[in-house]
């Protein structure tokens, strides 16, 4: 088991956003968590990354309890996040933003090779490499955010609402890249999405989150066939 989340509770003041969610990820899986606004999806990702600690419960990565580990150390042991709304460093160039992803890694990484690989996957970034990140369009920013997370060769990629604010064609492209990363490079991905159809389409398994609790879980095909999911999330 690569990642195991056991009964986590996340609360902001008195308001519980996540009340006792458990799930797990095997290596090489692509798993989606879908749910409406305020279901607690982002809170779960943030506690896995270590940005906001859970109030209760534990998070186990590669057999090691990391619940109390600060975010920057989790980044070093192979967890990376593509945060909601990209969160780039606005006053650094595209190239420098990519470089920040290698920061503090213990293992040696062929940086130039990784960067040309990423430029191959996202050609627009190569074209814009000298530009400041805040001059990029929304779609370009999302691509840079993914590339910045990928450069470190992570073992677990957390992806938060990557489809938000992207035009449908770009959504297709980005999801295509995630699928390719999972299938061809064996990258384990945890996808958090409102766009249930697009994300279940590329996933092996999924979880449906409703107001802080896990309402349903199963294989992606099962979930897509589930009448309740169809009604609420797929608009059938």
């Amino acid at each position: 088991m690569l990642l195991e989340v056991k009964d986590i509770h996340v609360a902001y003041g008195d308001i519980e956003a996540v009340c006792g969610v458990s799930f797990s990820l095997e290596k090489d899986e692509l798993v989606s968590i879908i749910g409406a606004n305020g279901a607690g999806k982002t809170s779960i990702l943030n506690s896995i990354m270590g940005i906001f600690p859970p109030r209760k419960g534990s998070i186990i990565f590669k057999g090691r309890d990391i619940t109390a580990m600060p975010a920057h150390q989790r980044a070093r042991i192979g967890i990376r996040i593509v945060p909601e709304r990209s969160r780039l460093f606005p006053r650094l160039t595209v190239y420098e933003n990519l470089l920040t992803g290698v920061y503090g890694l213990r293992k040696k990484i062929p940086v130039d090779k990784r960067i040309s690989w990423l430029y191959g996957m996202f050609p627009i970034l190569k074209e814009r490499r000298g530009q400041l990140a805040n001059t990029l369009s929304g779609g370009e920013q999302q691509q840079l955010s993914i590339a910045r997370a990928l450069i470190s060769d992570p073992e677990l990629l957390l992806v938060d609402e990557v489809s938000m604010g992207l035009m449908p064609k770009l959504v297709e492209q980005v999801f295509g890249i995630l699928k390719q990363l999972n299938e061809e490079h064996g990258l384990t991905i945890l996808l958090v999405e409102q766009n249930a159809f697009a994300s279940l389409n590329i996933s092996t398994r999924g979880y449906v989150l409703e107001t802080g609790t896990c309402a349903l879980s199963g294989s992606a095909a099962e979930l897509m066939d589930n009448p309740r999911v169809q009604e609420v999330y797929l608009g059938h």
Binding site: M49, G50, I51, P70, A71, H72, Q73, A75, R76, R80, I81, P83, R87, L88, F89, P90, R91, L92, E96, L99, T100, G101, Y103, G104, L105, R148, S152
Partner: peptide
């Protein structure tokens, strides 16, 4: 690079392995 990263986006920097 780390300092600039922390200056502009503290929590994003921490997810890159930079201790703010």
């Amino acid at each position: 690079l780390a300092c600039y990263a922390v200056r502009d986006e503290e929590s994003a920097a921490s997810t890159m392995g930079i201790s703010h």
